[in-house]
Amino acid sequence: MGKRVTQKSIAMECGVSTATVSYALRNSARIPLKTRNRIAAVAKKLGYQPDPSLASLASRRSSKKGSPFSASVAVIHPNPKDSRPSRLFDLHCHHFKAKMNELGCSVTDFYIDSGRYRPERLAQILRTRGIKGILLGWGKWPDYIKRFPWSEFAVISTVRTDLGSSIDKVSMNHFHALDDVFQQLDNLPYNRYGVILHDDCPEITIKHILGAYYANHYERPSLKSLPPYCFNMGEPPERLAQWYQKHKPEVIISHRVIDPKIFARAGISVPDEVQLVVLEIDEESSIQYSGVYSGAEMGRTIAVSLARKIRSDEVYVGSRNGKLTFVSGTWREGETLRLPKKNSNE
């Protein structure tokens, strides 16, 4: 048996430095494609076998010394820092950055509102900074961003942002959240649950919520399913009042937080006449809602997904179908749902 083929032996055979071999085998854009292909061919010829343990150790080595991080990533925000979508994204972004740092990656924010960067220019800046991964923020994206070379970077977004099929997505698991809600409601004497959807949320999310709503009704034949209500931000309360009067839900399951004033003006009194549960809560609020909170898990999951994607881009070339990672939220009991008093014997 001969000696193990190392990157050093490939470098000698090719007449380049070991650093060049290392970059080339990680498919780095720093090395011209022609050189990358040549080095890959020599590696194959010599029977080079990568050792994933070494790659893993090496990726952590530099951060321990306190010298530069192993990878840099960017968060691109389409709207200004103080816009509503950017502020809503803040919580997730905060946990994302903390986890990214833990994994040895540095994070830089880019705000691209008011046409600050052309896509080509932005790509150039990211390349120069050695940025390999991108997280897409919340908000409205300008049309010209389609020209950005997404396939050059490892990109993750939430389901709210849809810029291309190769981009991996992370989402709260609304289906599972609704399962949790139904389980909580099983303990209560109510049979009529009405669901409120928001017209500004992605179609796929609406489908998941409705799917879980009907699947849980299918499992509980004693419940009566009601037609869902689709809520538009800023609409007058009359239509909501009509829906409420017509179907008389005992429990309202709202996808997101709705201003309590709107319920009051629609004649819906929470929790005296109707119980309220919110399916996805990721903002601070003066009311303690009963419902599912997304918490830190979303940002953390985005971080590990992006880090893994950077790693797989080093090994694979070519685009793949995007995948979807679901994060479970946590049920928290608040003041908008009255649970029966606990049995004192328990």
Partner: peptide
């Protein structure tokens, strides 16, 4: 493929 990418990525970051 996704199985491989995921387990390799997780192993990489331990």
């Amino acid at each position: 493929r996704v199985l491989a990418d995921t387990i390799a990525g997780k192993l990489h970051y331990d």
